[in-house]
Nucleic acid binder design. Sequence first.
RNA 1: GCCCCCAUCGUCUAGUGGCCCAGGACGUGGCCCUCUCAAGGCCAAAACAGGGGUUCGAAUCCCCUUAGGGGCACCA
Length: 495
Amino acid sequence: MSASPERPVRVRFAPSPTGYLHIGGARTALFNWLFARKHGGTFILRVEDTDQKRYVPDSEQDIKDNLRWLGLTWDEGPDVGGAHGPYHQSQRSDLYRQWADWLVEHGYAYRCNCTAERLEDLRKQQEASKQTPGYDRHCRDLHLGAEIGEHVVRFQMPLDGETTINDLIRGPISFRNADLQDLVLLKSDGLPTYHLANVVDDHFMEISHILRADEWIATAPLHAQLYAAFGWEMPQIAHLPVILSPSGKGKLSKRDQAFQDGTMKVLVQVREYRRAGYLPEAVVNWLTNIGWAFGDDREIFPVAESIPRFDLANVNPAGGKLPFEKLEWLNGQYMQMLSVEDLAARVRPFFEQAGLAVDDDRLRRLVPLIRERIKTLPDAVEMAGFVFLETVTLEDPKQLVQKGMDAAGTVAALRAAHETLAGLAAFSAAAQEPPMRQLCEALGLKPGQLFGAVRVAVTAQQVSPPLFETMEIIGQATCLTRIRAAADRLEQLYG
RNA sequence: GCCCCCAUCGUCUAGUGGCCCAGGACGUGGCCCUCUCAAGGCCAAAACAGGGGUUCGAAUCCCCUUAGGGGCACCA
């Protein structure tokens, strides 16, 4: 039953199109992808669309788009094809049916026509009498034929003995067969359950290693028994640790959308990370570091460098929570590493979405100023959107008044600044600073007071990129207009 | 209830019997730098869940307890 070590590495990510790509799913995909790349193997995408009830039409597209966004491209699967297709389980029904029949014929499975009502009653009884819930094997020895009409096919689990799974991360895990269920393999709609489909597909797609979330551990012995019944070699298997909800209750996968946990925004779907302005390379770096460590005490590493180091033997079996604060930091680090060109291109759509008319020259000059001040792409809009605005308006002119100053003094300071700045022949930051500092002394103000008032006048914000560089980008005329307007308004209202 | 996984700072982790009175990172606090905010630099607080073994020696191996998690579907 153990796989031959020399078997070519072929791994798969097999999502079900019942929802958008989840961050936990992305992590599973990432580890599969890393494993494949490490071993020069093949990474396969397989769509497990056998649940018609929960099918979400645009979820497959979302899954594919976001895998690509993360750079987790597949070598075989939808859109790219391959020699082991089709890669949608809904197109492989005949195969599953054929092998389900084979199991029945060979005494490894049986037909069952127990009704949903009977199963429901059974479960209620078992709960009432505090018994372990599960199918009572009513039809197991009835040898029902195909003529019974609507029915399912159940696996005939051996009643004694043990099944041992050799998990690559956890070592051997044993189960008493008597504790295992006669699970449904083929549903009454003729489609397979996960258990049958994944075994048949993994076999015919020549999957060498199964890397999946650890919620599958409990059904692994069933899968092992299926391989044994078919007489097929079982792939090597490893169960990846789950990602837990930061709120401390349950696994994250139970929530399917972003939610608020205290002061922290918890993002769940990959599309939410994308929209929130995280860089895919930062997300990948972050995800790689949950359950696995690069080594050498390094926290920041490009994916290309983690490939040769990746090893299942170093995967931590314990589940963990997503460290969101670390993503914020990592994202900031990655943004600092990007070229001006690159960051400008990435930040541009966010300005546009905010309805701002982006000027390329200004944007390129702005990027170095905001690069180390933003954590996510849309932060740039909040920090420096005023650069692309014709006029800015202050909610309350009182905001111009800095600590230790009054309205009259502020008006005077602004007018003095206006005069100083208006007198400059060149409006570069370097040209602005010395006379403005002299002005501080002349007015008896601290730099923070004068510059603060000018900052608010020019940007309508208390916080901005460095003042002189910012004014240089905005331009002399616009700055002067804004300073005068601010002084006028303050004087009018509080003078 | 039954079966299974799992357990190092608040969080992500390093540690595969002596190099560990436990290292890194995020976050937190302090200081420095400073036109705001950041970034950066320096410093600090902060963990081997508990109890038994094994061993000359245990964070590392074994057992029990406890905590957390998963599963017990005609969902994946």
